[in-house]
């Protein structure tokens, strides 16, 4: 659906992104991750046709962004970093304007506006001026304008910034609903968000891709495997000794009654650890497998060199 090859963008003599290559398949939800200034926004601006790359190519649904800009732009709903809003317009008027701007036929406009309002839960403020809305509501209007034309592709630059936790959860549900029928790229700093919504992650740092994999693939890459965290009521050091002998366990960190067991093979590891904890009568009270430890991956990948 989206193919990016050798994409480079220089602002003057600063390289914002440097020969990026990746593809996104139809129906995928891809998380675009990276520290501040990594080039996420820049990449998104190029995909949406907002600006031209210095070199390289972007193809969306088979169309080159700069040879067939209309075909591409018609298919993309874009939420930029700063939501593009007209303060002195009423929410529904604004969404209607955007729908028409995106080329939706007049007969479908009302229905699509109603749908976008419902999905982003803007019902209460639909007749209010945008400039009087709170930041979170404005962000929702921004999201509504991205989905109002029912585009095949959604490009969302930090979609949950400024939202309250309940709304964040609702946006996640919304993204879950849209996945499958829509291709979605979202950038974010919020790691749990990626874990909750994305199938695949692309981590970029200083304009280069440093990792591109599924979540579990990424976690396996880190330190050659994942870890299991457990809390027991007693016998923790004895248990730690026993755990070290289990096949697949590479190391055990012990901190009072908390143990962190590193090893390979996620499910086997969990099974072995829990069995042993019961056998040793350690009083197992908590066993967790922090999926991926994305935070660790993120920090490791973006601070090296």
């Amino acid at each position: 659906m989206i193919e990016i090859s050798n994409l480079t963008k220089n602002y003057g003599d600063r390289k914002a992104i440097d020969s990026l290559n990746f593809t996104v398949k139809k129906g995928e939800v891809v998380g675009f991750l990276g520290p501040n200034g990594a080039g996420k926004t820049t990449t998104m601006k190029i995909i949406t046709g907002f600006m031209a790359p210095t070199s390289g190519q972007v193809k969306v649904a088979g169309f080159d962004v700069f040879e067939n800009p209309y075909e591409v732009k018609r298919r993309i709903g874009y939420l930029p970093e700063t939501p593009p809003l007209y303060g002195d317009m009423v929410v529904t008027d604004f969404l209607e304007f955007v729908a028409k701007l995106k080329g939706v036929e007049d007969s479908r406009v009302n229905q699509l506006v109603a749908r976008a309002v419902e999905k982003t839960q803007l019902g209460d403020v639909r007749h209010r001026l945008i400039q009087n809305l709170s930041k979170g509501y404005r962000q929702r209007v921004g999201l509504a304008q991205a989905i109002v034309s029912d585009p095949e592709i959604l490009i969302l630059d930090e979609p949950t910034v400024g939202l309250d936790p309940r709304q964040v959860a609702e946006i996640r549900t919304l993204l879950q609903e849209l996945r499958g029928s829509h291709t979605i790229i979202l950038s974010t700093h919020i790691l749990p968000e990626v874990q909750a919504t994305c199938e695949r992650v692309i981590i970029i740092n200083r304009g280069r891709i440093v990792a591109e994999d599924t979540l579990s693939g990424l976690s396996n890459r880190l330190r050659g495997g994942s870890y299991v965290q457990l809390r027991v009521r007693r016998n923790s050091s004895e248990l730690a000794q026993a755990l070290k002998a289990v096949g697949g366990v590479t190391s055990v960190e012990i901190n009072g009654n908390n143990l962190k067991v590193h090893g390979t093979g996620t499910e086997e590891l969990i099974e072995a650890v829990s069995e042993l904890a019961v056998a040793k009568r350690a009083g197992l009270v908590e066993l967790s497998h922090p999926e991926a430890g994305l935070e660790d991956i993120f920090i490791e990948l973006t601070t090296q060199h």
Partner: peptide, 13 residues
């Protein structure tokens, strides 16, 4: 200034 310009430039017009 309000960045609504981004919307115009990424629309099929």
């Amino acid at each position: 200034k309000m960045r609504s310009y981004d919307l115009l430039l990424t629309s099929p017009i």
